[in-house]
Design a protein around this nucleic acid. Sequence first.
DNA 1: CTGAAAGCGCTTACAG
DNA 2: CTGAAAGCGCTTACAG
Lengths: 333, 333
Amino acid sequence: MPRSSSKRVTLEEVARVAGVSRATASRVVNGVTTVDETIRAAVRRAIEDTGYVPNPAARALVTRRADAVALVLPEESRLLGDPFFGQVVRGVMTVLGPSGVHLVLMTMDANTRDQVLGDLRRGRLDGVVLIHTDRADPLPRLLIEERHPVVVSSRPVVPLPVTYVDVDQPAGGALAARHLASLRRNRIVTIAGPQHTTAGQDRLIGFRDALGDPDLPWVEGDFTRESGAVGMAQLLRAHPGLDAVFAASDLMAQGALAVLRESGRSVPADVAVVGFDDSSAALACDPPLTTVRQPVEDMAAEMARLLLRQVDDPDTPVTASVFPPTLVHRGSA
Amino acid sequence: MPRSSSKRVTLEEVARVAGVSRATASRVVNGVTTVDETIRAAVRRAIEDTGYVPNPAARALVTRRADAVALVLPEESRLLGDPFFGQVVRGVMTVLGPSGVHLVLMTMDANTRDQVLGDLRRGRLDGVVLIHTDRADPLPRLLIEERHPVVVSSRPVVPLPVTYVDVDQPAGGALAARHLASLRRNRIVTIAGPQHTTAGQDRLIGFRDALGDPDLPWVEGDFTRESGAVGMAQLLRAHPGLDAVFAASDLMAQGALAVLRESGRSVPADVAVVGFDDSSAALACDPPLTTVRQPVEDMAAEMARLLLRQVDDPDTPVTASVFPPTLVHRGSA
DNA sequence: CTGAAAGCGCTTACAG
DNA sequence: CTGAAAGCGCTTACAG
């Protein structure tokens, strides 16, 4: 039973109680296997008796490990409170928790870049997971240059030797395409995501290729509801006879749905609609949205795993981990 | 301009470059005011030139400060992804960010208690903010006993000398009561929260007192949608003529709304409904819910502030910080 | 397999 | 106002 000692117990005291050197006590604490069994037992008991807990600062000073990594989310307003964010945090935590590594939460604002770099340089952070970094953000490149462990949440637009985790975006587009084709729709259009993002590009490519229609009508949105509405209106004007639309995000699908309703078309009878993300918006839609789902929590866990691996071995080669999307069948298509 | 030195720069080197002792260099770094202006400038320049960043582990070893606090959320599944959670994180971050204190995120599971206590004991964490701790949870008491800085998110049910932040719950109940009274409703009922929580008790008390009706019909729910539905059905059976209901949570109000609709009553024409929390559920309701709002983000910021104060001075007296609720007027009442 | 010793990079009484 | 020195609590070559 640990003594409720008011004084802080150090390894020194454990060594004294166990009748060994501080070095040996340290070895037992750190699970070095070469220590004699009897001695090990004595040290164990001493630890129990004294209620010893190692001082992480002292340890970090020599090991140069903080046992803490940062999770950097876009900007305050955007993701916090979004269920997507909750899934990311949960996924990361499932792998960090057991390892005792601290999850330090940050949002990307003016000083976050400096703080992250500073914390990494001074060894206050071992690595960082970057969620949805803007393509113009210099942070990933800076981190790579300084050789800090980092994992990003999607394939970078500009080629960069960085480890990332992503959903198979083209496959997601293809999933939507095949579903609409199976419904015998043949006047299909799409509201694509921003073409300066890989998600935007790849979902469009995958969708178009699976359809085998190089002339597929499409407009570009920016993933927001508003852009979905605008895009839908445009498409309706140019192709009044359309009978199916794939929106590269649930929010855009939601915007499209509203415009379709205003135009007097019913979903899915007149027009089938498929979204992307399986966000909370998908369920809020009327009818609920058929959509392409990415396994966010699993992906986040994988990001944490890949990061920890880099922390353990800085020479771990850069890798990409790509997850298969699935189609969630609901009322809209 | 900082040299991009490959070697880690220590205070030792700064001192050498500036031609002073390590002690003096340290004083400049830490903003000690008694240092001669000329010397201070020299050290500043040396820091610039060398690109020095202090090693937090070394500093922590002597100052016994981790400059990190934990935010402990209920359990994985419940809060993550809830907008409420996003507001809490944001509020805490607004005060932590500028001070450079790390926000370590944890959820309450089997080993969280041990981890928090361990991290606090070994100085890896300076303090902890506890959100919605279960009343049976021994953690708050343990933290107090070991004199660790802690702030909890609502008044504890069992008296405990702990600093907390809460909304004025009775005032919230009163707000709902006065609003319904102003609508000339006179067959008012309420679905109260769990009576083993202070929120549950106080919202009921405030509501009943403001109404001045000791015989107010009420049932007890557990804040969930399901319990709201069950409670509404019960009340409807006993008081078919009711014309207003106050639910102590938006979720319960949502459950009540469904039951009212099934019973053929229209809201707010036949029955006025008021909820509590102003959660996302309030907006998802049809009609959107009139509800009592608590300033979650401000409250979270205050929790962080109170925690930091305790960290700075362990003898800071225990305090309570109570925020006024407001009524958000929407369609349901 | 074990121990004596050096060293990680700071801060802070204590003198002067 | 400044510096020499001790000390924070560990880990880890290096001998033996």
